[in-house]
């Protein structure tokens, strides 16, 4: 029934219409010189630049550098953050010892460390790797931790009263129940990791999409800047929607009635 389908997709349709309207208005504003295209660029100019850059090997080098920083920093944060979160969630004393450090790191935007990162790791990929890692690892630790704690409170007494061993309790109750929390953390962390890439490359880099944006900005190449920003938007949307989907899949493991 077409009427029903229309109703079902109203949000998407209205949203798409709004987006199209925005793009059209932008193009018109540039075409009729409501604002100087040198400042606001325009969708068609951005598309032209995108087509040009597609052919440019320098652009692909930038993409490669940025994705390397993102992927490795993010993976390292997962590899460190999940075990660490499990440990401080499971062992009270580990949380007492490490808690203050995590709190402090959580309070400070990790990008603040950029000047020191350059001094320690140089201007290449490694300083960005470090900033991406630091940005992403904290939300992963925190959400893994809170996942363990929530589960522990709920099920531990039951498990204990049935005489389950610590190992058994951990693997059969805590781990699966923690999974949805971990994915929530991963989603937050991906945003932080992307932020690290951008700031790190704006601050000091020899290559990367953020570096390209900074250079283009200095030379007033608005089209290129917009293209770079949109590239980040696109990446962010893709990464978060993949993670949101995974989060949803694991969500049925989430203990009922708990957070979200």
């Amino acid at each position: 029934m077409p009427g029903n389908a229309l109703q079902r997709y109203t949000p998407q349709l209205v949203g798409a219409a709004a987006l199209l309207g925005f793009v059209g208005f932008w193009e018109a504003a540039a075409a009729y010189k409501l604002a100087d295209p040198m400042f606001i660029s325009s969708p068609s100019r951005i598309a032209t630049v995108a087509a040009e850059m597609w052919e440019d090997p320098d652009f692909w080098r930038d993409v490669k550098v940025s994705s390397t920083e993102f992927i490795w920093g993010y993976l390292a944060a997962i590899a460190v953050g999940i075990p660490l979160g499990l440990v401080i969630g499971w062992y009270k004393r580990a949380q007492y010892a490490l808690g203050p450090f995590i709190d402090v790191l959580n309070a400070v935007p990790r990008v603040t460390f950029m000047p020191i990162m350059v001094l320690w790791f140089g201007i290449g990929i490694w300083s960005k790797f470090a900033v991406v890692f630091l940005g992403a690892v904290i939300p992963i630790i925190l959400s893994t931790y809170s996942g363990v704690r929530t589960n522990e409170a709920r099920y531990l007494r039951v498990a204990k009263s049935f005489g389950a061993s610590q190992m058994k309790t951990f693997t059969s109750i805590i781990l699966p129940g923690t999974a949805p929390y971990i994915f929530t953390g991963l989603k937050y962390a991906s945003g932080r990791a992307l932020l690290g890439v951008v700031v790190g490359e704006l601050y000091a880099a020899t290559a990367g999409v953020g570096h390209m944006i900074a250079q283009a900005g200095n030379a007033f190449e608005t089209d290129r800047v917009f293209f770079g920003v949109l590239l980040f938007t696109f990446t962010g949307l893709v990464v978060t929607s993949i993670l949101a989907r995974m989060e949803k899949r694991f969500d049925r493991w989430r203990p009922e009635g708990a957070v979200r």
Binding site: V198, V199, G217, F226, V229
Partner: peptide, 8 residues
């Protein structure tokens, strides 16, 4: 990452 708007 909204900071990418910085150069703009």
């Amino acid at each position: 990452p909204q900071v990418a708007f910085l150069p703009l």
